[in-house]
Design a protein around this nucleic acid. Structure first.
Length: 417
RNA sequence: GGAGGAGUGCCCGAGUGGCUAAAGGGGGCGGACUGUAAAUCCGCUGGCUAUGCCUACGUUGGUUCGAAUCCAACCUCCUCCA
């Protein structure tokens, strides 16, 4: 079925990673012949990546698994500029300290998916600040700027949309594509990297680098993008009830991460199994063949496998077990997200509004009030109608905790310490 | 540099002196139905120490008893001219 010779390209194709390729045959041949180096860049705009980046990370994972060398590029240099792609407005300028902090937060995730080291296919981490900060403006303009046509630059979606929407686009941001193009050239020079991958929104940025490679290094560089991920009903990937689906455990617990995958739409189960687990294809086919309520089993596998990749098998099994208890037995599973509160404070009584905000279930007292009115607020599984109610140690269950629920799916345990 | 037009809540978009925390739609959240799914239907959707107070219609000032609405300057964008 697949016409590709290299294991990497075959895998990418059958698992649904491919969207655009600059030269499919050429890349396939190269991957079949030798150990290739490829990179993907990541912005340092937040202290954790979220599931939106997971496709790219999985791609690097497979790239390494099929015998090649992946590079993760931390964009701490380009983050100082800000990628205008897909943004309505200029992003706030981040301070260098913020960027450095974000970089450190993001780094941790890669170690879960990639093996770093000095071997031929061991992953490397680079940071474009290492060369971008040293650039000399005049040299850069002359050596790189001459190859960029403003006529073409303003046709690009990232720029055109801003222009059409009558949104400000600073010259600073306008330069982003040059810098990303230059990154590719620089990484190629340093590591003989031949491939840049990324989300489909990065296509034109990647091609800038391909162009530079041909002109300044006289070498064919390759470009590969993944499809833009949306759910079957069209929503963007990566939102949950509580906000973004962060990859760092301190920003989204393994339990919540598991829940995110568990709540996948039926129509997405196969696609997600292929992209976000490393289960063999025939197993995925079997799971994806399930219908009706049975498909819930496939979703549990998806959730556990995806969670295991990120947080480890132990955490994944724990999350699955917690969910089983909470949803299938209705029990007060101890593994639910838990907040701690001083026992003395609990003795005096904690206002229900305060409690739900502290637990992170609501973002303001007003929201708690509205949810109480809407019948969504429960304490120890009992609906609560009184916004003046306090929770006290009298509410402690036999397990020594108090269970706060918002709706049917969101639960937090309060534990006195 | 000149002339004209525009900037509204998470997004789109109505509103041209008080009845406006701002129509409508989208999104989000909650409820019903289910399978912790989708679709559908219903409710909610600025904050607070809450029959009141505060913040909010690009920014800063001003007029007025009262401003998203009027005026001035500034910022950004669009169109035409130079």
């Amino acid at each position: 079925m697949s016409s590709y010779k290299s294991e990497f390209m075959r895998t990418m194709e059958e698992r649904g990673f491919l969207h655009q390729l600059s030269n499919a045959e050429g890349l396939d041949e190269l991957c079949a012949k030798e150990t290739v180096t490829a990179y993907i860049g990541f912005d340092c705009t937040a202290s954790s990546l979220h599931v939106g980046s997971l496709v790219q990370i999985m791609m690097l994972h497979w790239f390494q698994k099929t015998g090649h060398r992946p590079i993760t590029l931390m964009g701490s240099g380009t983050t100082r500029v800000g990628d205008p792609t897909g943004k309505d407005e200029s992003r706030k300028v981040l301070t260098d300290e913020d960027i450095e902090g974000n970089k450190n937060g993001i780094k941790q995730v890669f170690e879960k998916f990639l093996q770093f080291g000095d071997g031929p296919s061991d992953a490397m981490m680079m940071d474009n600040a290492d060369w971008l900060l040293k650039l000399n403006y005049m040299d850069f303009l002359r050596d790189v700027g001459r190859y960029f046509s403003v006529n073409q630059m303003i046709q690009r979606d990232s720029v055109r949309l801003r222009l059409e929407r009558e949104q400000h686009l600073s010259f600073l941001e306008f330069n982003y594509m040059l810098l990303q193009g230059y990154d590719y050239l620089e990484i190629h020079r340093r590591t003989d990297c031949r491939l840049q991958m990324g989300g489909s929104d990065q296509w034109s940025n990647i091609l800038s680098g391909v162009d530079l490679g041909r002109r300044l290094a006289d070498k064919e560089l390759f470009a590969l993008t993944t499809p833009l991920l949306t759910t079957a009903s069209g929503a963007k990937m990566g939102k949950t009830a509580a906000g973004a689906v962060w990859l760092n455990a301190d920003m989204l617990s393994p339990y919540d991460y598991w829940q995110f995958w568990r709540n996948t739409e039926d129509a997405d189960v196969e696609k997600f199994l292929k992209l976000f687990t490393i289960l063999p294809m025939d197993e995925i086919k079997r799971l994806a063949g399930m219908e009706g309520a049975e498909i819930n089993e496939a979703k549990k596998v998806l959730a556990t496998e995806a969670t295991a990749l990120l947080h480890g098998r132990i955490e994944a099994d724990k999350a699955a077990e917690t969910a089983r208890k909470a949803f299938e037995e209705g029990a007060n599973a101890a593994g639910l997200p838990t907040i701690e509160i001083a026992a003395t404070e609990l003795k005096e009584g904690l206002g229900i509004l305060n409690a739900f905000v502290t637990a992170g279930l609501c973002s303001s007292n007003g929201e708690v009030r509205r949810n109480i009115k809407g019948g969504a607020v429960r304490i120890n599984d009992k609906a609560e109608q009184d916004h003046n109610r306090s929770i006290t140690d009298a509410d402690l269950t036999d397990d020594g905790v108090i269970k706060l629920s918002l709706g049917k799916k969101k639960h937090v345990l309060v534990k006195p310490v």
